[in-house]
Simulated assay, not measured.
Amino acid sequence: MAQQVRGVIARAKGEPVRIETITVPDPGPGEAVVKVQACGVCHTDLHYREGGINDDFPFLLGHEAAGVVESVGAGVTEVAPGDFVILNWRAVCGQCRACLRGRPQYCFDTHNAKQKMTLADGTELSPALGIGAFAEKTLVAAGQCTKVDPEASPAAAGLLGCGVMAGIGAAINTGGVGRGDSVAVIGCGGVGNAAVVGARLAGAAKIIAADIDDKKLRTAKELGATHTVNSRTTEPVAAIRELTGGNGADVVIEAVGRPETYEQAFYARDLAGTVVLVGVPTPEMKIELPLLDVFGRGGALKSSWYGDCLPSRDFPMLIDLYRQGRLDLDAFVTETIALEDVEKAFERMHHGDVLRSVVTF
């Protein structure tokens, strides 16, 4: 029987979000209903509200979530009612050319629930990243549920659903950071600081964090950065080169998503080094680099989408590290808030006051 719950809705571009009653249908074949326990407030949700993703309003926001499976539809075998899960937006198909080549982390045909959640008047909702977890319950494809250790804190675990996984994966999966490497991270918000953590987990010998905010740089230092650079007062390329013997870093992770910081990342890497773009640019942004420099410096220029993660592989492993005390996910939870406080959390995000506000139910 369909259920009615409360959810955070963005009805039109730029309008403040509101709490409304939504209808969650019973799960159909391959689907699951999840009782949400916690959901992080991510910049992507703000992009949806601002029309920066698409204009399929109204949106049911929220996607960085953990909770408990309440019910499943026909044919679901990967999870069962009662399982504690992290929600993901890479439910791999198993049939596309990437999956068939053994690279499911690049799946080209990820899927979501086929049924739609609706407003009380029947208006269909577009769930953020196919999840829509600023709600007491949500309907997703069963493949979007990754079972993990139920002893993990939901507020911390849910952050692996997007931002923290994106940063850790940018370092480990995309950047291929190895033991003894030098790493520079440009932009130390939630994703950038997660990249710092990923570089530390991978055994990097030198981790240089660059940002224009001293508060964010202090956090980066606490999370494992060995050096910090305030780009407002110090030219970051020169500083990163000086800290790496004049050579540049082996891996430079750009976590801002702007042409000027990408250019900094390009010139701050060592010859044959790697640049990883994990910051999300806007559609109108363009980059111009001398093609001879691209050729002459060698190495790799990569983009990292969701940290090139495979949820079924990465989420349980990272939760195990968290439970062992080797990965401090709790450090990313700046505050826990109520569903009604999401709009205020967007305002705090603008001011750079938080790594993550997390809605808890």
Results as ranks from 00 to 15, higher is better:
Gln3Ser: 13
Arg6Val: 00
Gly14Phe: 09
Gly14Ser: 10
Glu15Ile: 08
Val24Trp: 11
Pro29Val: 11
Val33Pro: 06
Val34Arg: 04
Cys39His: 09
Val41Arg: 11
Gly52Cys: 02
Asp56Thr: 09
Ala66Lys: 10
Val72Gln: 00
Val72Pro: 01
Thr77Ile: 10
Ala80Asp: 12
Asp83Leu: 02
Arg90Leu: 14
Val92Phe: 00
Gly94Phe: 08
Ala98Leu: 04
Cys99Met: 04
His111Lys: 14
His111Asn: 11
Lys116His: 14
Thr123Arg: 00
Ser126Lys: 15
Ala135Leu: 07
Leu139Ile: 08
Cys145Ala: 03
Thr146Lys: 01
Lys147Ser: 03
Val148Ile: 12
Ala155Pro: 07
Ala156Leu: 04
Cys162Trp: 03
Val164Glu: 07
Met165Trp: 03
Ala166Trp: 01
Ile168Tyr: 05
Gly169Gln: 08
Ala170Gln: 05
Ile186Arg: 06
Val196Pro: 04
Val197His: 00
Val197Asp: 01
Leu201Asn: 02
Gly203Asp: 05
Ile212Phe: 05
Asp214Cys: 00
Ala220Ser: 13
Glu222Val: 08
Leu223Thr: 04
Val229Met: 07
Ala239Tyr: 04
Gly246Phe: 13
Asp250Gln: 15
Val252Thr: 12
Arg258Gln: 08
Tyr262Asn: 07
Tyr267Leu: 13
Pro283Met: 03
Pro290Glu: 13
Asp293Ile: 00
Arg297Gly: 00
Lys302Leu: 15
Ile319Gln: 02
Tyr322Lys: 06
Arg323Asp: 00
Asp328Val: 00
Thr336Phe: 03
Leu339Lys: 12
Glu340Gln: 06
Arg356Leu: 09
Ser357Cys: 13
Val359Ser: 09
Val359Ile: 14
